[in-house]
């Protein structure tokens, strides 16, 4: 079975925010929530690098570990999803997640946050695939339709890739060979741990430093 992951190539991202917009539109995401965002380091000066970030669907997911009602589950493809019917809006997943992926429609006094929302890797939720109910709570289920996440699909520079980790690693390895350097993939060691699994690592200094 494929193991789904995201890669964002910091050498390619041009901070167009196409992925952010596509995601928001595709899933009709609640107000105040952005499942994906682009962060730019050294903005506007030489050495600028941009990175698109959303839920990375971690291997040993911190959100899953701290949820007091245990509402997260992992699909066969390694996608980390949650059940909004169970979520109590305690915010713990937001405290634990290194990437700031879990978000809430409100930030009310007395901890009234509403149900947590985050990137689903375009894989919906526990409801029947492509049902009305599923769309309303989690957005479109593209994986069920045999499609990959829309953010990566629309990326004009192919900086953002989403899909089977082995395939992504091959593509990335090819890029690294072509440009000769820069094997790090940001966020990978945080999300997927030290690369001990075969083929998770694209190049010699595998897995990246962040």
């Amino acid at each position: 079975m494929a193991r789904m992951k995201f890669i964002c190539d910091a050498e390619r991202c041009i901070e167009c925010n196409g992925c952010v917009t596509a995601c928001k539109n595709e899933h009709e995401v609640p107000w105040g929530v952005n499942r994906r965002r682009v962060v730019t380091i050294n903005d506007g000066v030489p050495g600028e690098r941009s990175m698109s970030v959303a839920c990375m669907h971690c291997s040993d997911a911190p959100c899953m570990a701290v949820c007091p009602v245990d509402c997260f589950y992992r699909t066969d493809e390694g996608v980390v999803l949650h059940d909004k019917d169970l979520c109590i809006g305690c915010g713990y997943c937001f405290y634990a997640c290194p990437f700031g992926a879990p978000q809430f429609p409100q930030a009310g006094a007395f901890g009234l946050r509403g149900k947590m929302d985050k990137c689903t890797f375009c894989a919906g939720g526990p409801e029947a695939n492509s049902s009305e109910e599923e769309f309303r709570k989690y957005g479109r289920n593209r994986l069920a339709e045999g499609k990959l996440p829309l953010c990566a699909e629309v990326c004009s520079t192919k900086a953002l890739l989403g899909g089977d980790a082995d395939v992504l690693a091959d593509i990335y390895r090819q890029r690294v060979l072509t440009r000769g350097k820069g094997a790090e993939i940001w966020g990978w060691s945080t999300a997927y741990g030290k690369p001990d699994a075969p083929a998770a690592a694209p190049a010699p200094s595998a897995g990246g430093k962040s």
Binding site: N34, R37, V38, V39, G100, A107, W186, G187, T190, S210
Partner: peptide, 12 residues
């Protein structure tokens, strides 16, 4: 980052 919210500019 253009996205507004709590610590949205933090990557990790």
């Amino acid at each position: 980052t253009t996205v507004k919210g709590v610590e949205t500019g933090v990557l990790i």
